[in-house]
Simulated scan of single mutants.
Amino acid sequence: MQVLRFAPSPNGWLHLGHAYSALFAFEMAKRLDGRFLLRIEDIDVGRCRPEYEQAIYDDLRWLGLEWEEPVRRQSEHFAGYERHLKQLREMGLVYPCFATRKEIQDAIAQSGIAPRNWPADPDGAPLYPGIYKNIPRETLNRLMWEGRTYAWRLDMEKAKAEAERINGGPITFTEEGASALGHKGVLPIEPELFGDVVIARKDVPTSYHLSVTADDALQGVTLVTRGQDLFPATYIHRILQLLLGFPEPRYHHHGLIRDDTGRRLSKSAKDMGLRALRTAGRTPADIRRLIGL
């Protein structure tokens, strides 16, 4: 049986883009006679709020969605993510990075390469310049003893090599959507585009990449549906699936809901939420028409 999910973060009000993603997964699960799960991705405990989480339930029920209970809340499962992080540490594939944002900016500025020409990852962030990679053990111990804040970064070169060894060759994934990107079928991964990504932090033993990969495996998700903006993240997730012994799901990256200028909707831009649209008298049928479903 096929298992699909919608996994929002309660750090703002759901908007039309979320409605599209939720309905897309829900309707596909129905067509496939499969299961539909709701998961609350609230590992960012500083930004997530109970009122946003309750609004997720209210908005989705208003749209006519139903899901299995209980709902998995990631903040209740940090110990499980920490076990996966420990596995990666024992494999020698992650390292602590103490770099501040300013240190990274300064290292780039001192490289002789203009910041605008410094390579960026698919999300637009500058690639990590390796400031604290391969530092002496004595230095590492001193920084930890001082209580410095740090993040765990995945050594991408080592991780990809190990994942390819486990896989017995080049790593791919199966994409069923992403037609607007021109990508479909069995595709190769390019995780090196992200460099040494952050996989966890000192105070939170996980990241989006680690928790979503672990939860999809734990919950038996067989088809991951999500927006095209997350297409490149699949490169990292396939690496982690192989390293941690997780099964490989299929993927369908769907189109994004955009405003009249072509900008994709986002919480950070304060785009009108479903809650406000509902208060203004819009109906679920209106929402479906607005998003083309």
Rank of each mutant, 00 (worst) to 15 (best):
Y20G: 01
A109H: 07
P129G: 12
H183L: 11
L32G: 02
W152H: 00
A163N: 15
R101T: 15
L240A: 13
A25K: 03
L88W: 06
R83A: 12
L242G: 11
G281V: 00
T206M: 08
G17P: 02
A114S: 10
R89C: 07
E248M: 10
T172M: 11
L93C: 14
G130N: 02
A29S: 08
L193I: 08
Y95R: 06
Y128S: 12
Q74A: 00
F194W: 07
E164L: 05
I239K: 03
D216Q: 07
T222K: 07
Q105T: 06
Y20E: 04
V197K: 04
D259W: 05
K160N: 11
R39W: 03
D216C: 06
R137F: 08
L210D: 02
R31G: 00
N167S: 15
H84G: 09
I135E: 09
I108F: 03
F26V: 04
S211K: 02
I40C: 07
R35L: 05
P170V: 15
E190D: 14
T234Y: 10
K86N: 11
E53Q: 04
R238P: 14
M91V: 13
Y132V: 05
D121F: 05
G262V: 01
G220M: 05
G182L: 02
E146V: 14
A79N: 13
S179P: 11
Q87D: 09
K184C: 10
V45K: 07
G177R: 00
I291C: 07
G80Y: 12
R49T: 02
S75A: 06
D33A: 04
E68D: 13
G130K: 03
A276D: 08
F173L: 02
S179E: 11
L23K: 01
H252E: 14
Y235A: 10
S111H: 04
S268F: 15
M91N: 15
R289S: 12
N11L: 01
R101G: 10
I171K: 12
R258C: 13
L14D: 06
A79V: 12
K30Y: 01
A151R: 15
E162V: 09
G112T: 03
L193Y: 08
I257V: 13
P232L: 12
Q110E: 13
G92I: 01
T283C: 14
A79L: 15
L65K: 07
P70Y: 10
M144F: 13
I135R: 06
E69H: 15
G262R: 01
L293A: 03
E175I: 09
A180F: 08
L16V: 03
E41I: 09
M144E: 11
C97R: 03
L293W: 03
A161K: 05
V198P: 10
L256I: 01
G262Y: 01
L88S: 09
A159P: 15
P136C: 01
A99T: 13
R137N: 02
G262W: 02
E27G: 05
D196R: 10
G262P: 07
T279L: 14
R5P: 04
L244E: 14
